Amino acid sequence: MNLKPAKPAQPPHAVEENIASVRQMLGELRAVAHNEGADMLRYFIEMAYVEAGDILSGFRPLSIRENRDRAPGVPLNPAGKVKL
């Protein structure tokens, strides 16, 4: 069962512009985290910043989802309330 509605494919230049915008925002967030001394948060933001740069340079694909083996017949449901 596909829970996500199909979205129209964007032209490649629009995708690159969006990823570049995300990378720019991550750079700004990285500076804020650094100024606040949030080292672990800064690290994770830095990893996302590097990932966005790798996508823009063509070093990494936009998504790994197409290259994964899926478990057949196993639905991935969002976590709900835990009943004890």
Rank of each mutant, 00 (worst) to 15 (best):
A48L: 12
L62F: 09
I64T: 11
L41E: 08
Y43M: 10
A38H: 09
A31D: 13
L29A: 11
D54M: 12
A48H: 05
G37F: 04
A20W: 08
A20M: 08
S57E: 03
I45E: 02
G37C: 07
E51I: 04
L26F: 04
N35I: 02
G37Q: 04
E28C: 03
G27I: 02
L56P: 06
G27H: 01
R23K: 15
I55D: 04
I64M: 04
E28K: 09
N77D: 14
R23A: 14
R60M: 04
D54H: 08
R65P: 00
A38S: 09
L29H: 05
R65D: 12
R23T: 14
G37K: 10
M47P: 01
L62A: 07
A33E: 08
P78E: 14
R30N: 04
R68G: 02
S63A: 11
N35W: 00
R65S: 09
F44I: 11
G27F: 02
S21C: 10
L26R: 09
D39K: 12
L29K: 11
M25R: 12
N18F: 13
I55N: 06
R68I: 04
A33K: 01
I64W: 12
P78K: 15
V50E: 10
I55F: 06
E36K: 12
V22C: 11
L76P: 01
R60T: 03
I19R: 05
R60H: 07
D69Q: 03
A48W: 05
L26Y: 03
L26Q: 15
